[in-house]
Every structure is written in C-alpha cells, then in structure tokens.
Write a protein that binds this DNA or RNA. Structure first.
Lengths: 204, 204
DNA sequence: GTCTATAATTAGATAGAC
DNA sequence: GTCTATCTAATTATAGAC
C-alpha cells in the first residue's frame, strides 16, 4: 500500500471542490427563486445533499454565500458586451433579446437574484443599484451624447426592471408566457425610442 | 357617579378602535418599507406603542395583519377611477401622474407593499398578480378594441412595475429623484404608445 | 382591551469529533 | 472535508392575569 493520504494525487479530486460547486449551484437556484430573505442556509444544504455546517465552512456566512452566488462566472458574459459595442443602431432589440435569452434559460442570474432580494434586504438593494449602474446605466450613457443621457438610460432601466419583474417574478400574463420574438418586437422599439427618440416638450 | 362602565358614551372613544388604527397605520408603513418578510409583528407593535399580543388580538395572524393593511380604504381611490373613465385620449399621462402622485405621498400603498413582498413571499406574489389584473389590466383592456389588447395592457404593467421598482424600491438615479413633471413628460407618451401606437411588424 | 409570561419553532452560526 | 451536537437569538403565536 502506498501512502496516499499525504500525496493528493488527482485520481479523482479528493475533496471539497465538488461539494463547494454543488452548494454554489444550489444556492444560485434557490436565491433566484426565493430571494435572499426567502432562502435558508439549511434549505441550500439539504438541496445540495450536504450538511449545513459545510456551507459555513466554505462560505463563512449566509451573506458570503450570497456574494459568491451573484459573482458572475466570467466577469461579463460576451453576449452582454456585444449589446453596447455595436453602436446605437438597433440597440433596442439587442437589449431586449439579450435580456430575455439570458433570463429564460435560467433564473440563476445576478439580475434576478438581486431583484428578488432587494425589496426585503437593504444590502441587496445596494448591490442591485451598483450592479445596474455599472453594467447598464454607465455603458448606455457612454453611447449617448445628449445632456439627458442619464435620464434616457434610466428609462431603459425601467424597461429592464419592469420586464424582469413582470415576466419572471410576478409572472403577469400575457407578458410571462409571450414569445421572445413577440416581446422583442414590442419592447425593442420602445427601448430604442427611450435612447434615440424625441421628447415631446419639456413642460415649462 | 353614573355607571359609565356599561354605557359606552363617546366622550372619547373608549379603547381599541384607536389602538387598532394605530397598529394598522404602522403596519402599512413598515410593510411598505420592508415588505412582508422584512417586517416583524414585534416591530409593528413597538413602533405603534402597543404590545405584540395586541396585534394578534386584533388581527389573529401576521397574514391577517398584512391582509388588513393592503385592503384599500375606500375600495378604489377616486383618482384611479378617473384614469379610465376619461377615455384613451391622454391616458398615458394620467396613468403616470396618478401613479407618481399616489406613491410619492406615501409608500403605504398596496402596490408598493405587494411589490416589496412578492419576491420572497408566494402568497404576496399571487395577491399582487390578482391586484394588477383587477385594478389595471382588466380596465385597460376594456378600453381597447384590438386583438392584442391584453398584450398592450401588459406592456403598461411593465411600465408601472418598472417605475415603481426603479423609483421607490431600488431607487435608481436619476429616476428616483426626477420630478413628477419630468417623468410624466417622458413616460406619458411611452405609455400612450403602448396602448394606441403602431406595432412595427409582427415578425413572422 | 391590555399586558406578562411563555410555549413552540426556526434560523444563523460555532466547537469539536472523526 | 464532513458531520453531530449545540448555542444563541429571534419569531410567531397562545394562555391567562388584570
């Protein structure tokens, strides 16, 4: 018998990396479906098939777990990047299509997790605000050259948040079960107008 | 001395009606600011200056308190009624102005309380869905005569939810601190277009 | 009606054996 | 790394005295 106890040969990853990953996956799932306040560490542990103590072993606190869960795999998904790099032309459709494509596949996305958590958790509220500012507002505003750039970007945020809440959280019909194409057709031009359209008059 | 104990003369409302009202007011305030899950019965009791047991005495359960809190004073506020009774002309502005006027004054409105609670509480999610269907979708759809009436009404719901979340819950700038007039100017036409505007093409 | 217990449950977190 | 056992604190809710 060779003394394998010390050698740490990777015949199969001894240890935690696997459990840690399973916990993380499960956490994303539950945080995405029930928000921070609606998810318990115990529930995550049970669903992941490990002991609650392991969760704390790996992530320290519930907040630590949440922070790890919302951390994006590769800082920014390539799809999101291409929304902004292709200029203003047709950006409305790209915003909506990218949003829906991402969220339809899994609700374990930072946007949904944070949107579900913010209303009852102050820390999540701050995180969501920062997330939106960094990932959306700043990039949109950078494309615009008008004095009301921030406000226009803000209007797009309203579309994004409204769509996320209506389709994935409150599940209001017929928004919840409309096809991606239908929503792109409807909301794409709306977003485009927020960014490049005219404003009526400025009311005194 | 006349035996006042039994007579119940209204020199000043003996008892509970006053406490009950204070509890209800406080509950609306806290539910509106922290949602169902983020609000404890004890917090409500303390803020209202009464004992936690009183809350249960009057409302039975926490859910009972919440139900009482979201119940509107006079079934439907007159302002909301007039949005729909004045026809489609200029309805976009009326929707936005009424929404903001109501929510700016106090967040103790059913819409905010429910929107804050729905993400982490399934029962609130259902209540919010029903509330929106009854108070907004149905009334809007009734005004429209097109085959896509429901979808158009849904688009307005997205505007309302997005605005509520961006301005009052996540507090995204510059939406959060924009003036009512500014937002009416910006979102009024957008809502109008959702309802009465043209749709590009129907994309196969 | 109002308050003082207090029961029953649950959640986040830690210590320590294996 | 993993689990058992446990601590602490907070919450909903009830029983009963005043």
């Amino acid at each position: 018998m060779t003394e394998e106890g010390t050698h740490r040969r990777p015949g199969r990853w001894r240890s935690g990396a696997e459990s840690k990953q399973r916990i993380l996956d499960t956490a994303r799932d539950l945080f995405g479906r029930h928000g921070y306040g609606g998810t318990t560490v115990r529930a995550v542990a049970t669903a992941a098939g490990v002991d609650p103590a392991m969760v704390f072993y790996f992530f320290g606190t519930k907040q630590g777990l949440f922070a790890a869960a919302i951390e994006m795999s590769a800082s920014t998904p390539p799809a999101i990047e291409s929304i902004f790099t292709d200029g203003l032309d047709g950006i409305g459709e790209r915003v909506i299509r990218t949003l829906l494509d991402n969220l339809d596949n899994s609700e374990r996305t930072p946007l949904v997790m944070l949107t579900r958590s913010a209303p009852t958790d102050n820390q999540s509220e701050t995180l969501l605000r920062e997330f939106i500012d960094r990932e959306i507002t700043d990039r949109l505003a950078a494309l615009l050259d008008t004095p009301d750039a921030a406000l226009r970007a803000g209007m797009v945020n309203v579309q994004i948040l409204g769509l996320a809440v209506a389709r994935y959280i409150v599940r209001i019909e017929p928004i919840a079960s409309a096809s991606v194409e239908e929503l792109v057709t409807r909301f794409g031009p709306l977003v485009q107008q927020c960014l490049t359209g005219q404003v009526g008059d400025h009311a005194r």
